[in-house]
Amino acid sequence: MSLGMELHNAPDPNFTFAFQPIVDTESREVLSYEALIRGSGNQPAYQILEQVPAERMHLFDEKARMEAIGLAMRLGIGCDLNLNLLPSSLYSSPTAILSTMEAANRYHLPITRIVLEVTEGEIIADMTHFASLINEYRGLGLKVAIDDFGAGYSGLNLLVNFQPDQIKLDMFLVRGIEAHGPRQAIVRAIDQACRDLGIDVIAEGVETIAEYEWLANQGVRLFQGYLFAKPGFESFPPIHYPECS
């Protein structure tokens, strides 16, 4: 059976996407939309993912990216598109990224507009292997973001052998940062290292003006969070740019 048939006949749960913008608060432009898995009735991602058997997860992961590209193009996306990638599917399926690139071609989305997000915890186990696999596609213009950066044990070490295009600060580091010295010290260090290496820093999960102001004063200008826009179910939601006091 061909891979295409296998994907087609799979008893996967019904799913669709919500899109949440990553905004540049200085230029007031949308840098990208992250595609977030939802149920067809806007159920949260975990309720969908828990219905997928472990052995099918990488195929589901692959299919989700293809569908996300299709939906984003139907909605008329005019900026980057951030898509999640399970690194394990990169190891177990040779078509993991190829299928994404084919979908991009089919829908006329330039490859350079795609950002693959992988979580820090998932790649640290085999950084060298991951880097060599992903670098092949980076040569074609695909961008890479490390999600939940600073959440695990690796942190800055991760950047020694691999410099992604973006890192997304884990929301644990962002939460209440305006009043928390250790979080501030760590975020300053991450920001400095990323600046020196030409890596964009995105603050994720920003919910309050105070968090936003502290990060903006530090020089962070890319944000994703409820303060700016909630994920829009099958849509690109309206964006609110807060004013610093």
Partner: peptide, 9 residues
Amino acid sequence: MIVREPIAK
């Protein structure tokens, strides 16, 4: 060396 990586163009 600051960075060495693949580029598309």
